[in-house]
């Protein structure tokens, strides 16, 4: 064998060897995919369990005993007011006005989950059936006292509270005598 022939043979062997290595590599890379099927034709997977926690409580219920009524009110020569308070819910206090008849305030009875806080939504002002304006609404809770500012109370251990709603009626000068009642749109919701 000539030197040139020997060189060609060595080169051919090197290429053949490289081909075997590449073939082996290709086989190895392919074989590496096999475990992906876990050797049993199934895909790898894993599961975990957990839970979602929810606490159901009593729905709120609200009932009212009466509407806001100031009685029969008449004006004087100057602007006046007629006020109802939690301390005096059936007798209005008049200033530069006259008032007669029995006054009433709404008493809300709220029931629900014991110890749960609630919120009362009331408008800032009301209009009476005779067209006058009621403002400075007062909220007084049997459980929490005056809640005019926070409008929030707490149900007692029996899941109950009562709330009185009162306010002040503005009486323009020379207002003719009339009965002044007001319906209060309100909403109570859990906090």
């Amino acid at each position: 064998m000539s030197v040139r022939a020997a060189q060609l043979r060595r080169s051919a062997l090197r290429h053949a060897a490289l081909g075997l290595v590449l073939s082996a590599l290709a086989g190895h890379a392919f074989a590496a995919k096999a475990p992906a099927k876990n050797g049993a034709g199934t895909t790898p997977e894993t599961s975990a369990n957990n839970s979602v926690a929810i606490t159901l409580i009593e729905p709120l219920t609200v009932s009212t005993t009466s509407q806001l009524s100031f009685g029969t009110v008449a004006g004087t020569a100057t602007a006046g007011t007629v006020a109802l308070s939690a301390a005096s819910p059936t007798k209005a206090t008049a200033k530069n006005a006259t008032v007669s008849g029995k006054a009433t305030v709404p008493v809300l009875t709220i029931t629900g989950a014991a110890g749960q806080a609630y919120h009362v939504s009331v408008p800032a002002t009301l209009t009476t059936t005779a067209g006058l304006t009621v403002s400075s609404l007062i909220l007084h809770s049997a459980n929490s006292g005056t809640i005019t500012t926070t409008k929030s109370g707490v149900l007692n251990s029996k899941g109950r509270d009562t709330v009185i709603v009162a306010g002040t009626l503005a009486v323009p000068p020379l207002t003719k005598a009339a009965q002044h009642n007001a319906t209060i749109p309100l909403a109570v919701a859990y906090q």
Partner: peptide, 13 residues
């Protein structure tokens, strides 16, 4: 009323 739990399962594949 009271506490309730609802189970769920997550599987990744």
């Amino acid at each position: 009323n009271g506490a309730s739990t609802v189970s769920y399962s997550a599987t990744v594949t």
